[in-house]
Design a protein around this nucleic acid. Structure first.
Length: 477
RNA sequence: GCACGUGUGGCUGAGAGGAUUAAGCAGGAAAAUGCAAAUUUCUGAAACACAGGUUCAAAUCCUGUCGCGUGCUCCA
Protein backbone atom coordinates (compact mmCIF):
# COMPACT_ATOMS: atom_id res chain seq x y z
CA UNK A 1 0.00 0.00 0.00
CA UNK A 2 1.29 3.42 -0.94
CA UNK A 3 0.54 6.65 0.83
CA UNK A 4 1.67 10.19 0.24
CA UNK A 5 4.04 11.37 2.91
CA UNK A 6 4.07 15.12 3.42
CA UNK A 7 7.55 14.86 4.88
CA UNK A 8 9.10 13.49 1.73
CA UNK A 9 6.67 14.86 -0.86
CA UNK A 10 6.44 11.37 -2.27
CA UNK A 11 4.26 8.34 -2.42
CA UNK A 12 5.81 5.78 -0.13
CA UNK A 13 5.13 2.19 0.73
CA UNK A 14 3.47 2.05 4.06
CA UNK A 15 5.49 0.00 6.50
CA UNK A 16 4.62 0.31 10.17
CA UNK A 17 7.20 0.08 12.93
CA UNK A 18 5.47 -2.94 14.33
CA UNK A 19 4.29 -5.28 11.57
CA UNK A 20 0.92 -5.93 13.15
CA UNK A 21 0.06 -2.63 14.72
CA UNK A 22 -0.29 0.94 13.48
CA UNK A 23 0.19 3.90 15.79
CA UNK A 24 -1.76 6.83 14.52
CA UNK A 25 -2.28 10.29 15.88
CA UNK A 26 -4.65 12.86 14.42
CA UNK A 27 -5.04 16.48 15.46
CA UNK A 28 -8.57 16.98 16.62
CA UNK A 29 -10.64 20.11 16.93
CA UNK A 30 -10.47 23.04 19.27
CA UNK A 31 -13.85 22.73 20.84
CA UNK A 32 -15.28 26.23 20.95
CA UNK A 33 -17.95 25.84 18.31
CA UNK A 34 -20.05 23.27 16.46
CA UNK A 35 -18.27 21.11 13.91
CA UNK A 36 -18.44 22.25 10.29
CA UNK A 37 -17.99 20.27 7.09
CA UNK A 38 -14.25 20.79 7.22
CA UNK A 39 -14.04 18.95 10.51
CA UNK A 40 -16.11 16.20 8.98
CA UNK A 41 -13.76 15.88 6.04
CA UNK A 42 -10.75 15.53 8.28
CA UNK A 43 -12.44 13.06 10.58
CA UNK A 44 -13.73 10.97 7.70
CA UNK A 45 -10.38 11.01 5.93
CA UNK A 46 -8.57 9.52 8.87
CA UNK A 47 -11.43 7.21 9.66
CA UNK A 48 -11.12 5.89 6.13
CA UNK A 49 -7.38 5.34 6.50
CA UNK A 50 -7.90 3.65 9.82
CA UNK A 51 -10.62 1.42 8.44
CA UNK A 52 -8.58 0.47 5.43
CA UNK A 53 -5.58 -0.39 7.55
CA UNK A 54 -7.80 -2.47 9.78
CA UNK A 55 -9.21 -4.16 6.75
CA UNK A 56 -5.65 -4.98 5.73
CA UNK A 57 -5.25 -6.74 9.04
CA UNK A 58 -3.46 -4.18 11.16
CA UNK A 59 -4.50 -3.35 14.63
CA UNK A 60 -4.84 0.42 14.60
CA UNK A 61 -4.41 2.55 17.67
CA UNK A 62 -5.86 5.91 16.76
CA UNK A 63 -5.56 8.82 19.14
CA UNK A 64 -7.35 12.06 18.41
CA UNK A 65 -7.26 14.91 20.86
CA UNK A 66 -9.58 17.68 21.94
CA UNK A 67 -8.05 21.07 22.57
CA UNK A 68 -10.20 22.11 25.46
CA UNK A 69 -8.20 25.04 26.72
CA UNK A 70 -7.10 27.90 24.51
CA UNK A 71 -7.63 31.59 23.79
CA UNK A 72 -10.69 31.10 21.66
CA UNK A 73 -12.39 28.87 24.17
CA UNK A 74 -11.80 31.33 26.98
CA UNK A 75 -13.00 34.18 24.82
CA UNK A 76 -16.12 32.34 23.76
CA UNK A 77 -16.90 31.22 27.28
CA UNK A 78 -16.62 34.80 28.51
CA UNK A 79 -18.87 36.00 25.73
CA UNK A 80 -21.68 33.69 26.63
CA UNK A 81 -21.07 33.87 30.35
CA UNK A 82 -19.97 30.36 31.09
CA UNK A 83 -16.69 28.71 32.03
CA UNK A 84 -14.26 27.13 29.62
CA UNK A 85 -14.91 23.65 30.94
CA UNK A 86 -18.64 23.50 30.38
CA UNK A 87 -18.21 25.15 27.01
CA UNK A 88 -15.67 22.63 25.83
CA UNK A 89 -17.65 19.75 27.26
CA UNK A 90 -20.72 20.84 25.40
CA UNK A 91 -18.88 20.98 22.10
CA UNK A 92 -17.05 17.72 22.69
CA UNK A 93 -20.41 16.09 23.19
CA UNK A 94 -21.71 17.63 20.01
CA UNK A 95 -18.61 16.60 18.08
CA UNK A 96 -18.91 13.04 19.29
CA UNK A 97 -22.60 12.84 18.46
CA UNK A 98 -21.93 14.04 14.96
CA UNK A 99 -19.01 11.68 14.48
CA UNK A 100 -21.25 8.83 15.46
CA UNK A 101 -23.87 9.91 12.94
CA UNK A 102 -21.18 10.11 10.29
CA UNK A 103 -20.15 6.58 11.12
CA UNK A 104 -16.67 7.60 12.29
CA UNK A 105 -15.34 4.80 14.44
CA UNK A 106 -14.49 5.62 18.04
CA UNK A 107 -10.86 6.36 18.76
CA UNK A 108 -8.53 4.25 20.80
CA UNK A 109 -8.13 7.30 23.03
CA UNK A 110 -9.57 10.81 22.86
CA UNK A 111 -7.53 12.80 25.36
CA UNK A 112 -8.26 16.34 26.38
CA UNK A 113 -5.49 18.85 26.80
CA UNK A 114 -6.49 19.63 30.36
CA UNK A 115 -6.15 15.99 31.35
CA UNK A 116 -2.44 15.83 30.75
CA UNK A 117 -1.19 19.14 32.09
CA UNK A 118 1.19 17.36 34.45
CA UNK A 119 2.87 15.50 31.65
CA UNK A 120 3.09 18.64 29.55
CA UNK A 121 4.85 20.38 32.41
CA UNK A 122 7.28 17.47 32.65
CA UNK A 123 8.04 17.68 28.95
CA UNK A 124 8.46 21.44 29.05
CA UNK A 125 10.81 21.11 32.01
CA UNK A 126 12.92 18.68 30.05
CA UNK A 127 12.95 20.96 27.03
CA UNK A 128 14.19 23.80 29.19
CA UNK A 129 16.77 21.56 30.79
CA UNK A 130 18.00 20.39 27.41
CA UNK A 131 18.34 23.97 26.27
CA UNK A 132 15.64 23.93 23.62
CA UNK A 133 13.35 26.24 25.51
CA UNK A 134 13.73 29.38 27.55
CA UNK A 135 11.75 31.14 30.20
CA UNK A 136 10.77 34.67 29.49
CA UNK A 137 8.54 36.88 31.55
CA UNK A 138 6.72 33.97 33.17
CA UNK A 139 6.15 32.09 29.91
CA UNK A 140 8.19 29.34 28.33
CA UNK A 141 9.12 29.42 24.66
CA UNK A 142 10.61 26.88 22.33
CA UNK A 143 13.57 28.23 20.44
CA UNK A 144 13.18 27.06 16.87
CA UNK A 145 16.76 27.95 16.02
CA UNK A 146 17.92 25.29 18.45
CA UNK A 147 16.33 22.73 16.22
CA UNK A 148 18.47 22.80 13.15
CA UNK A 149 16.11 21.29 10.62
CA UNK A 150 13.21 23.51 11.57
CA UNK A 151 13.23 25.63 8.44
CA UNK A 152 13.22 22.75 6.02
CA UNK A 153 10.37 20.77 7.56
CA UNK A 154 7.61 20.36 4.99
CA UNK A 155 9.61 22.50 2.62
CA UNK A 156 10.82 20.63 -0.37
CA UNK A 157 14.28 22.15 -0.18
CA UNK A 158 17.76 20.99 0.67
CA UNK A 159 19.18 21.21 4.11
CA UNK A 160 21.65 23.97 4.68
CA UNK A 161 25.22 22.89 5.28
CA UNK A 162 26.25 25.37 7.92
CA UNK A 163 25.49 23.65 11.18
CA UNK A 164 26.32 26.49 13.46
CA UNK A 165 25.28 25.95 17.00
CA UNK A 166 22.82 28.55 18.03
CA UNK A 167 22.81 29.90 21.54
CA UNK A 168 19.77 31.57 23.00
CA UNK A 169 20.96 35.04 24.00
CA UNK A 170 19.44 34.80 27.44
CA UNK A 171 21.47 37.65 28.89
CA UNK A 172 19.84 40.06 26.52
CA UNK A 173 16.28 41.24 26.66
CA UNK A 174 13.94 39.33 24.34
CA UNK A 175 13.29 41.51 21.34
CA UNK A 176 10.02 40.28 19.84
CA UNK A 177 7.41 40.59 22.55
CA UNK A 178 8.81 38.03 24.98
CA UNK A 179 10.63 36.01 22.34
CA UNK A 180 14.12 35.90 20.88
CA UNK A 181 12.87 34.87 17.50
CA UNK A 182 9.70 35.61 15.68
CA UNK A 183 9.07 31.92 15.05
CA UNK A 184 9.61 30.77 18.61
CA UNK A 185 6.39 29.44 19.99
CA UNK A 186 4.94 29.34 23.44
CA UNK A 187 5.01 26.11 25.44
CA UNK A 188 3.67 27.57 28.62
CA UNK A 189 1.60 30.70 28.70
CA UNK A 190 1.74 33.03 31.66
CA UNK A 191 -1.49 33.52 33.54
CA UNK A 192 -3.60 36.59 32.91
CA UNK A 193 -6.26 37.99 35.21
CA UNK A 194 -9.61 36.29 34.63
CA UNK A 195 -8.23 33.20 32.97
CA UNK A 196 -8.10 29.64 34.24
CA UNK A 197 -4.67 28.53 35.35
CA UNK A 198 -2.55 25.62 36.53
CA UNK A 199 0.43 25.83 38.80
CA UNK A 200 3.81 25.16 37.30
CA UNK A 201 7.48 25.68 38.10
CA UNK A 202 7.17 28.96 36.16
CA UNK A 203 4.16 30.18 38.05
CA UNK A 204 0.48 30.15 37.20
CA UNK A 205 -0.35 29.60 33.58
CA UNK A 206 -1.61 27.24 30.94
CA UNK A 207 -0.10 25.20 28.14
CA UNK A 208 0.44 26.51 24.62
CA UNK A 209 -1.36 24.89 21.78
CA UNK A 210 1.36 22.85 20.09
CA UNK A 211 2.73 21.01 23.08
CA UNK A 212 -0.40 18.99 23.80
CA UNK A 213 -0.29 16.95 20.61
CA UNK A 214 3.31 15.92 21.13
CA UNK A 215 2.63 14.97 24.71
CA UNK A 216 -0.45 12.95 23.95
CA UNK A 217 1.17 11.09 21.10
CA UNK A 218 4.26 10.31 23.15
CA UNK A 219 2.35 9.38 26.25
CA UNK A 220 -0.36 7.27 24.67
CA UNK A 221 1.43 5.83 21.64
CA UNK A 222 5.17 6.15 22.09
CA UNK A 223 8.19 8.21 21.16
CA UNK A 224 7.93 7.41 17.48
CA UNK A 225 4.60 6.82 15.80
CA UNK A 226 3.64 5.59 12.36
CA UNK A 227 1.13 8.08 11.09
CA UNK A 228 0.43 11.62 12.10
CA UNK A 229 -2.55 13.25 10.47
CA UNK A 230 -4.41 16.50 10.34
CA UNK A 231 -5.72 19.16 8.03
CA UNK A 232 -3.44 20.76 5.49
CA UNK A 233 -3.63 23.99 7.43
CA UNK A 234 -1.89 22.38 10.37
CA UNK A 235 1.26 21.59 8.44
CA UNK A 236 2.84 24.81 9.39
CA UNK A 237 3.43 25.86 12.00
CA UNK A 238 1.59 23.32 14.13
CA UNK A 239 3.11 20.12 12.83
CA UNK A 240 6.49 21.73 12.37
CA UNK A 241 6.43 22.72 15.98
CA UNK A 242 5.26 19.32 17.06
CA UNK A 243 8.11 17.64 15.26
CA UNK A 244 10.67 20.05 16.67
CA UNK A 245 9.60 19.78 20.27
CA UNK A 246 8.96 16.05 20.16
CA UNK A 247 12.33 15.18 18.74
CA UNK A 248 13.98 17.66 21.05
CA UNK A 249 12.31 15.89 23.94
CA UNK A 250 12.69 12.24 22.94
CA UNK A 251 16.04 12.48 21.23
CA UNK A 252 14.75 10.15 18.54
CA UNK A 253 15.43 10.74 14.89
CA UNK A 254 11.80 11.05 14.03
CA UNK A 255 8.48 11.85 15.58
CA UNK A 256 6.20 10.25 13.00
CA UNK A 257 7.26 8.26 9.98
CA UNK A 258 4.38 9.43 7.84
CA UNK A 259 2.64 12.75 7.93
CA UNK A 260 -0.71 12.79 6.15
CA UNK A 261 -2.70 15.91 5.42
CA UNK A 262 -6.23 16.15 4.18
CA UNK A 263 -7.35 18.82 1.72
CA UNK A 264 -9.96 21.43 2.42
CA UNK A 265 -13.61 21.81 1.91
CA UNK A 266 -14.07 24.84 -0.28
CA UNK A 267 -17.02 27.09 -0.81
CA UNK A 268 -16.91 28.94 -4.12
CA UNK A 269 -13.33 27.78 -4.48
CA UNK A 270 -12.29 29.30 -1.21
CA UNK A 271 -11.34 27.41 1.88
CA UNK A 272 -14.18 26.90 4.31
CA UNK A 273 -13.00 28.25 7.60
CA UNK A 274 -14.05 29.82 10.80
CA UNK A 275 -12.05 32.94 10.15
CA UNK A 276 -13.64 33.54 6.76
CA UNK A 277 -17.08 32.85 8.15
CA UNK A 278 -18.08 30.83 5.09
CA UNK A 279 -18.59 27.60 6.94
CA UNK A 280 -21.51 25.23 7.02
CA UNK A 281 -22.27 23.26 10.12
CA UNK A 282 -22.57 19.52 9.84
CA UNK A 283 -25.72 19.65 11.89
CA UNK A 284 -27.34 21.99 9.37
CA UNK A 285 -26.44 19.82 6.43
CA UNK A 286 -27.82 16.78 8.21
CA UNK A 287 -31.18 18.47 8.42
CA UNK A 288 -31.66 17.83 4.73
CA UNK A 289 -29.19 15.09 3.92
CA UNK A 290 -28.55 11.65 5.25
CA UNK A 291 -25.20 11.50 7.07
CA UNK A 292 -24.18 8.71 4.73
CA UNK A 293 -24.76 11.02 1.79
CA UNK A 294 -22.46 13.58 3.34
CA UNK A 295 -19.90 10.87 3.93
CA UNK A 296 -20.13 9.65 0.37
CA UNK A 297 -19.89 13.22 -0.86
CA UNK A 298 -16.68 13.78 1.08
CA UNK A 299 -15.23 10.48 -0.10
CA UNK A 300 -16.09 11.18 -3.70
CA UNK A 301 -13.06 13.40 -4.01
CA UNK A 302 -9.56 12.38 -3.05
CA UNK A 303 -8.64 13.01 0.56
CA UNK A 304 -5.68 15.23 -0.32
CA UNK A 305 -7.66 17.31 -2.76
CA UNK A 306 -10.13 19.96 -1.90
CA UNK A 307 -13.79 19.31 -2.33
CA UNK A 308 -16.21 21.99 -3.31
CA UNK A 309 -19.21 22.21 -1.08
CA UNK A 310 -22.54 23.01 -2.69
CA UNK A 311 -26.10 21.81 -2.41
CA UNK A 312 -25.92 20.68 -5.98
CA UNK A 313 -22.90 18.49 -5.34
CA UNK A 314 -24.55 17.01 -2.30
CA UNK A 315 -27.60 16.20 -4.39
CA UNK A 316 -25.35 14.43 -6.82
CA UNK A 317 -23.93 12.35 -4.01
CA UNK A 318 -27.44 11.65 -2.83
CA UNK A 319 -28.42 10.27 -6.21
CA UNK A 320 -25.37 8.07 -6.34
CA UNK A 321 -26.03 6.88 -2.85
CA UNK A 322 -29.63 5.97 -3.56
CA UNK A 323 -28.58 4.19 -6.67
CA UNK A 324 -26.23 1.96 -4.73
CA UNK A 325 -28.67 1.31 -1.90
CA UNK A 326 -31.43 0.46 -4.28
CA UNK A 327 -29.42 -2.22 -6.00
CA UNK A 328 -28.35 -3.71 -2.71
CA UNK A 329 -31.96 -3.94 -1.69
CA UNK A 330 -32.85 -5.46 -4.98
CA UNK A 331 -30.28 -8.19 -4.62
CA UNK A 332 -31.21 -8.71 -1.03
CA UNK A 333 -34.85 -9.23 -1.84
CA UNK A 334 -34.31 -11.46 -4.81
CA UNK A 335 -34.56 -15.20 -4.27
CA UNK A 336 -31.59 -16.99 -5.75
CA UNK A 337 -31.94 -20.15 -7.73
CA UNK A 338 -29.84 -23.27 -7.79
CA UNK A 339 -26.58 -22.27 -9.39
CA UNK A 340 -26.46 -25.42 -11.48
CA UNK A 341 -29.24 -23.92 -13.55
CA UNK A 342 -27.07 -20.98 -14.50
CA UNK A 343 -24.57 -21.75 -17.19
CA UNK A 344 -21.96 -19.08 -16.72
CA UNK A 345 -22.22 -16.90 -13.68
CA UNK A 346 -20.84 -13.77 -15.26
CA UNK A 347 -22.09 -11.60 -12.45
CA UNK A 348 -20.01 -13.40 -9.86
CA UNK A 349 -17.03 -12.73 -12.07
CA UNK A 350 -17.88 -9.04 -12.05
CA UNK A 351 -17.61 -9.01 -8.29
CA UNK A 352 -14.15 -10.50 -8.45
CA UNK A 353 -13.10 -7.88 -10.96
CA UNK A 354 -14.50 -5.01 -8.93
CA UNK A 355 -12.92 -6.27 -5.76
CA UNK A 356 -9.49 -6.36 -7.30
CA UNK A 357 -9.89 -2.99 -8.96
CA UNK A 358 -11.19 -1.34 -5.84
CA UNK A 359 -8.45 -2.63 -3.60
CA UNK A 360 -5.88 -1.63 -6.13
CA UNK A 361 -7.29 1.89 -6.17
CA UNK A 362 -7.31 2.02 -2.40
CA UNK A 363 -3.75 0.77 -2.21
CA UNK A 364 -2.79 3.74 -4.30
CA UNK A 365 -2.99 6.43 -1.66
CA UNK A 366 -6.65 5.79 -0.90
CA UNK A 367 -8.06 6.67 -4.28
CA UNK A 368 -11.69 6.77 -3.25
CA UNK A 369 -13.07 8.52 -6.35
CA UNK A 370 -11.74 5.69 -8.45
CA UNK A 371 -12.97 3.07 -6.05
CA UNK A 372 -16.44 4.55 -6.03
CA UNK A 373 -16.46 4.56 -9.81
CA UNK A 374 -15.78 0.83 -9.76
CA UNK A 375 -18.56 0.28 -7.27
CA UNK A 376 -20.91 2.08 -9.62
CA UNK A 377 -19.78 -0.03 -12.52
CA UNK A 378 -20.64 -3.15 -10.57
CA UNK A 379 -23.99 -1.64 -9.63
CA UNK A 380 -24.72 -0.95 -13.24
CA UNK A 381 -23.81 -4.47 -14.32
CA UNK A 382 -26.01 -5.86 -11.59
CA UNK A 383 -28.91 -3.63 -12.52
CA UNK A 384 -28.60 -4.65 -16.14
CA UNK A 385 -28.77 -8.27 -15.17
CA UNK A 386 -31.59 -7.91 -12.73
CA UNK A 387 -33.75 -5.25 -14.26
CA UNK A 388 -33.06 -5.13 -17.92
CA UNK A 389 -32.59 -8.78 -18.66
CA UNK A 390 -34.68 -9.86 -15.74
CA UNK A 391 -32.43 -12.82 -15.11
CA UNK A 392 -32.11 -15.00 -12.08
CA UNK A 393 -29.20 -14.81 -9.73
CA UNK A 394 -27.28 -17.67 -8.27
CA UNK A 395 -26.98 -18.35 -4.60
CA UNK A 396 -23.24 -17.86 -4.93
CA UNK A 397 -23.71 -14.47 -6.47
CA UNK A 398 -26.10 -13.30 -3.83
CA UNK A 399 -23.80 -14.37 -1.05
CA UNK A 400 -20.71 -12.97 -2.72
CA UNK A 401 -22.44 -9.70 -3.49
CA UNK A 402 -23.73 -9.14 0.00
CA UNK A 403 -20.48 -10.10 1.62
CA UNK A 404 -18.67 -7.77 -0.77
CA UNK A 405 -20.99 -4.98 0.29
CA UNK A 406 -20.11 -5.75 3.87
CA UNK A 407 -16.44 -5.51 3.03
CA UNK A 408 -17.02 -2.20 1.32
CA UNK A 409 -18.94 -1.02 4.29
CA UNK A 410 -16.09 -1.94 6.59
CA UNK A 411 -13.77 0.22 4.51
CA UNK A 412 -15.92 3.13 3.45
CA UNK A 413 -18.49 3.05 6.19
CA UNK A 414 -21.13 4.45 3.88
CA UNK A 415 -23.93 2.08 4.54
CA UNK A 416 -26.14 2.51 7.56
CA UNK A 417 -26.51 -0.25 10.07
CA UNK A 418 -30.10 -0.76 9.18
CA UNK A 419 -29.19 -1.18 5.56
CA UNK A 420 -31.41 -4.10 4.84
CA UNK A 421 -34.33 -2.57 6.60
CA UNK A 422 -34.46 0.79 4.95
CA UNK A 423 -37.90 1.54 3.74
CA UNK A 424 -38.05 3.32 0.48
CA UNK A 425 -40.60 5.84 1.56
CA UNK A 426 -38.42 7.13 4.34
CA UNK A 427 -35.01 6.68 2.83
CA UNK A 428 -34.49 10.41 2.67
CA UNK A 429 -35.15 10.94 6.27
CA UNK A 430 -32.25 9.93 8.40
CA UNK A 431 -33.92 10.79 11.66
CA UNK A 432 -35.43 7.90 13.38
CA UNK A 433 -39.08 8.59 13.32
CA UNK A 434 -41.22 8.40 16.36
CA UNK A 435 -43.51 5.44 16.56
CA UNK A 436 -46.51 7.60 15.90
CA UNK A 437 -44.83 9.10 12.87
CA UNK A 438 -44.03 5.62 11.67
CA UNK A 439 -47.60 4.47 12.04
CA UNK A 440 -48.91 7.59 10.43
CA UNK A 441 -46.77 7.07 7.39
CA UNK A 442 -47.86 3.50 7.19
CA UNK A 443 -51.46 4.64 7.31
CA UNK A 444 -51.01 7.21 4.58
CA UNK A 445 -49.17 4.67 2.50
CA UNK A 446 -52.00 2.16 2.83
CA UNK A 447 -54.63 4.70 1.94
CA UNK A 448 -52.68 5.62 -1.15
CA UNK A 449 -52.42 2.01 -2.17
CA UNK A 450 -56.14 1.68 -1.81
CA UNK A 451 -56.74 4.80 -3.89
CA UNK A 452 -54.45 3.51 -6.57
CA UNK A 453 -56.23 0.22 -6.66
CA UNK A 454 -59.46 2.04 -7.21
CA UNK A 455 -57.71 4.15 -9.86
CA UNK A 456 -58.35 7.41 -8.08
CA UNK A 457 -55.05 8.67 -9.34
CA UNK A 458 -55.50 12.40 -8.96
CA UNK A 459 -55.85 12.03 -5.23
CA UNK A 460 -53.08 9.47 -4.79
CA UNK A 461 -50.70 11.62 -6.83
CA UNK A 462 -51.59 14.64 -4.78
CA UNK A 463 -50.66 12.80 -1.62
CA UNK A 464 -47.38 11.67 -3.15
CA UNK A 465 -46.49 15.13 -4.41
CA UNK A 466 -47.24 16.83 -1.16
CA UNK A 467 -45.33 14.28 0.84
CA UNK A 468 -42.41 14.83 -1.49
CA UNK A 469 -42.60 18.52 -0.79
CA UNK A 470 -42.15 18.00 2.91
CA UNK A 471 -39.21 15.75 2.24
CA UNK A 472 -40.73 12.31 2.36
CA UNK A 473 -40.08 10.51 -0.85
CA UNK A 474 -42.71 8.08 -1.88
CA UNK A 475 -41.97 5.90 -4.83
CA UNK A 476 -44.31 3.42 -6.45
CA UNK A 477 -42.94 0.14 -7.58
C1' G B 1 7.91 37.25 -2.52
C1' C B 2 9.03 32.04 -0.91
C1' A B 3 6.83 27.10 -0.50
C1' C B 4 3.19 23.43 -1.69
C1' G B 5 -0.77 22.00 -4.67
C1' U B 6 -4.00 22.47 -8.84
C1' G B 7 -6.06 23.58 -13.99
C1' U B 8 -9.75 17.25 -18.14
C1' G B 9 -16.97 18.14 -21.44
C1' G B 10 -22.56 22.31 -18.41
C1' C B 11 -21.06 20.14 -13.31
C1' U B 12 -18.47 16.31 -10.00
C1' G B 13 -14.25 13.50 -10.97
C1' A B 14 -10.65 9.14 -12.83
C1' G B 15 -6.58 8.38 -16.17
C1' A B 16 0.20 9.93 -15.27
C1' G B 17 3.73 8.01 -22.10
C1' G B 18 0.81 4.29 -26.61
C1' A B 19 -5.55 1.41 -29.28
C1' U B 20 -12.27 4.94 -29.32
C1' U B 21 -9.76 9.81 -22.53
C1' A B 22 -13.37 6.07 -17.09
C1' A B 23 -17.63 6.62 -13.84
C1' G B 24 -21.56 9.67 -12.00
C1' C B 25 -24.81 14.13 -12.17
C1' A B 26 -27.42 17.43 -15.27
C1' G B 27 -29.44 17.90 -20.88
C1' G B 28 -31.77 15.10 -25.36
C1' A B 29 -34.21 10.44 -27.35
C1' A B 30 -36.26 5.49 -26.58
C1' A B 31 -38.19 0.93 -23.71
C1' A B 32 -41.38 -0.38 -19.62
C1' U B 33 -45.37 2.07 -16.51
C1' G B 34 -52.15 4.88 -15.03
C1' C B 35 -48.87 9.30 -14.24
C1' A B 36 -44.34 10.59 -11.66
C1' A B 37 -39.94 8.53 -9.54
C1' A B 38 -36.52 4.74 -9.93
C1' U B 39 -34.26 1.44 -13.92
C1' U B 40 -32.02 0.19 -18.61
C1' U B 41 -30.46 1.53 -23.73
C1' C B 42 -28.77 5.24 -27.16
C1' U B 43 -26.89 10.26 -27.40
C1' G B 44 -24.36 15.60 -27.54
C1' A B 45 -20.42 21.25 -33.74
C1' A B 46 -15.11 18.95 -31.77
C1' A B 47 -13.37 18.42 -22.65
C1' C B 48 -7.24 17.39 -21.33
C1' A B 49 -5.34 26.17 -19.34
C1' C B 50 -1.68 28.26 -22.99
C1' A B 51 3.18 28.17 -25.58
C1' G B 52 7.48 25.61 -26.55
C1' G B 53 10.48 21.04 -25.96
C1' U B 54 11.79 15.56 -25.28
C1' U B 55 9.70 11.11 -27.94
C1' C B 56 8.05 6.89 -33.33
C1' A B 57 4.07 8.35 -29.68
C1' A B 58 2.24 13.23 -24.48
C1' A B 59 -3.74 14.84 -21.06
C1' U B 60 0.39 12.03 -18.97
C1' C B 61 7.58 13.80 -18.84
C1' C B 62 10.56 18.76 -19.12
C1' U B 63 10.71 24.29 -19.52
C1' G B 64 8.14 28.77 -19.51
C1' U B 65 3.53 31.62 -19.16
C1' C B 66 -1.26 32.41 -17.26
C1' G B 67 -5.38 31.25 -13.88
C1' C B 68 -6.95 29.30 -9.16
C1' G B 69 -6.23 27.51 -4.06
C1' U B 70 -3.52 27.02 0.46
C1' G B 71 0.58 27.87 3.92
C1' C B 72 4.33 31.49 5.56
C1' U B 73 -0.64 34.54 11.17
C1' C B 74 -5.67 31.35 14.89
C1' C B 75 -8.08 27.40 11.73
C1' A B 76 -9.56 20.30 10.08
Amino acid sequence: MKIYNSLSFKLEDFIPINPTEVLMYVCGPTVYDSPHIGHAKSAITFDLIRRYLEFKGFKVKLVKNYTDIDDKIIKRANEIGTDYLSLSEQYIKEYEDIMELLNVKPNYKSPKATEIIDFMIEVIKTLVKKGFAYISNGSVYFSVKKFNNYDILFQNIKKKEDDEIYEIPQEQEPFISDKYDDKDFVLWKKWKEGEPYWNSPWGKGRPGWHIECSCMAIKLLGNVIDIHGGGLDLKSPHHKNEIAQSIAYTGEEKFANYFLHNGFVNVDNEKMSKSLGNFFLVSDVLKTFDPMVLRLFLLSSHYRHSVNYSINNLRQAQKVYKRIIKTIQLVNEKDPIDSRLIEIDSLSLEIKKSREAIFQAMDDDLNTPKAIAYILTLIKKTNQHLLEENKDISKEFKEAFLSFINELNAIFGIFPKSLYKIKLYASDNFKEEDDIMEQLLELIKNIREELRKRKIYDLSDKIRDELNEIGINLEDK
